[in-house]
C-alpha cells in the first residue's frame, strides 16, 4: 500500500515536472524534435527559432513598428497635401507598396526583384520636383530603404571642376555626402551639354561608377526640363537603363495655381479680399496663357504673393491705426502694384 502510494506520488511528481518544462520551452523543444524526426529542414528550424526570438522581443518591436507605420502615414499625408501631381502621388504610392511587398517576399524567401530606385524627374522649374524628392527621401527612410533619407541638392557647378581630375574628386565628394540619402542633381542635362571634351562627361562617368560601387547606399535623382532631359538620355543610352523610374511633373493649371496660392496665404496667415482674389486669378491665367517663363509653376505664385505682402506692409505702415482685419487682408491695389513690377 505504502509502496503503491509512493509510486503514485512519484509518478505524479514526474508528470508535474514534465508539464512545467514543457510549458517553459515548448516551441524550442518542439522544433528540435521536428528536425530530429526529419519533418523540417534545419533551415526551417533556424527560421522558426528566429521567429520565436522575435516573439519574445515582440512587445518592443511592435511598438517600434506601429511608430514606423505612423510615420509613413504622416509622410503620405504630406504628399497628398501637395496640390495637383496626381500621377506622381500614385507613382510614389506604387513604389511604397512595391518595396513593402518585396520585403515580405524576402522574408518568405521568395524571389525578389532588385530594388533599383534611381529616378529621372522631368518638368519645368517650380513644379514640385525638389519637394517630392524630399518627401521620397523621408519615406524611404521609414521604409528602411535608406538609412538617413536626407537630400543633397547639387547642380553642374557643384560637380564640375576646373582642371583635369578635379571633377572626379568633387563629384565623389558630393556622392559621399549623399550616402544614405538622395543625391538630387538639378538641371542634370547640363552635364552633357559641353560635348566630348567637357568635364561634365567626367562627372557622369563618376556618377555611373558610384551607382555600381554604392549600389544600395544612395539614390540618384536627375532632374531638369523635359525636352532637355529626353535629349540627355538619348545622348547617353547607358544611363537610360540605370534609371527605371521616370516622373513627369506637368505645369500646374490655373485652378491648381489658385489652390497653391490659397495654401500659401493660409500658411502665412493672410487672406485676399474678394476683388484681390479675382485679380490674382486674372494675373495667373494671363501668365499661363501668354507663356511666361515661370508660367504654370508655383514659384510664380509665390513671387506674386510675397510682393503683395510687401506692398501691403508699405501701405499699412503709413497709417496711424491698423486693425487686425487690415493686417490679415491683402487688397486689390497690393496685387495691382505687385504685377506692375512684372514679377
Amino acid at each position: 500500500m505504502e509502496i503503491n502510494l509512493r509510486y503514485g506520488f512519484n509518478k505524479f511528481n514526474k508528470k508535474n515536472l514534465a508539464t512545467t518544462t514543457k510549458e517553459k520551452i515548448p516551441a524550442q523543444s518542439r522544433i528540435v524534435r521536428l528536425v530530429e524526426q526529419g519533418h523540417i529542414t534545419p533551415v526551417k528550424a533556424l527560421q522558426m527559432l528566429k521567429d520565436k526570438d522575435c516573439q519574445l522581443q515582440g512587445q518592443k518591436r511592435q511598438e517600434y513598428g506601429s511608430d514606423n507605420e505612423e510615420n509613413i502615414e504622416s509622410i503620405i499625408k504630406e504628399l497628398d497635401e501637395l496640390v495637383g501631381l496626381k500621377k506622381i502621388k500614385n507613382l510614389v504610392k506604387e513604389l511604397q507598396a512595391f518595396i513593402t511587398i518585396q520585403r515580405y517576399r524576402a522574408r518568405e524567401q521568395l524571389q525578389t526583384e532588385p530594388l533599383v530606385l534611381h529616378m529621372i524627374f522631368k518638368g519645368n522649374p517650380g513644379t514640385g520636383k525638389t519637394t517630392v524628392a524630399r518627401i521620397i527621401g523621408k519615406l524611404f527612410k521609414e521604409l528602411g530603404v535608406l538609412p538617413k533619407g536626407h537630400l543633397i541638392e547639387v547642380e553642374r557647378a557643384d560637380l564640375v571642376g576646373e582642371y583635369i581630375g578635379h571633377t572626379a574628386q568633387r563629384t565623389r565628394d558630393q556622392v559621399k555626402k549623399a550616402l544614405g540619402g538622395i543625391l538630387f542633381i538639378d538641371e542634370a542635362y547640363s552635364l552633357a551639354r559641353g560635348g566630348e571634351k567637357d568635364f561634365g562627361k567626367e562627372a557622369i562617368d563618376v556618377l555611373v561608377k558610384a551607382m555600381e560601387d554604392h549600389k544600395d547606399e544612395f539614390i540618384l535623382i536627375l532632374a531638369g526640363y523635359k525636352d532637355e532631359m529626353d535629349w540627355f538620355l538619348l545622348t547617353n543610352p547607358g544611363l537610360r537603363s540605370r534609371f527605371p523610374i521616370h516622373m513627369e511633373f506637368p505645369d500646374y493649371t490655373v485652378k491648381e495655381l489658385m489652390d497653391i496660392a490659397a495654401l500659401m496665404l493660409k500658411k502665412r496667415q493672410y487672406k485676399l479680399s474678394e476683388d484681390a482674389a479675382a485679380e490674382l486669378g486674372r494675373i495667373i491665367s494671363s501668365k499661363v496663357l501668354y507663356g511666361h517663363q515661370h508660367g504654370g509653376n508655383a514659384r510664380l505664385v509665390r513671387n506674386i504673393i510675397e510682393k503683395a505682402i510687401r506692398r501691403q506692409a508699405v501701405r499699412l505702415v503709413r497709417k496711424n491705426y491698423v486693425s487686425r482685419e487690415e493686417l490679415l487682408t491683402l487688397c486689390f491695389e497690393d496685387l495691382l502694384e505687385a504685377t506692375e513690377d512684372g514679377s
Binding site: 522544433i31 530530429e36 524526426q37 526529419g38 529542414t41 534545419p42 533556424l46
Partner: peptide, 24 residues
C-alpha cells in the same frame, strides 16, 4: 554541420537537432 535539406540519416538529423538546441 547543418544541411539545407532534410537529411536521410537519422543519426545526422539527431545531430542537427542537437546543434539547433545548442543554438538556443
Amino acid at each position: 554541420g547543418l544541411s539545407e535539406d532534410i537529411h536521410t540519416s537519422a543519426d545526422l538529423r539527431r545531430g542537427m537537432a542537437l546543434t539547433i538546441a545548442a543554438l538556443a
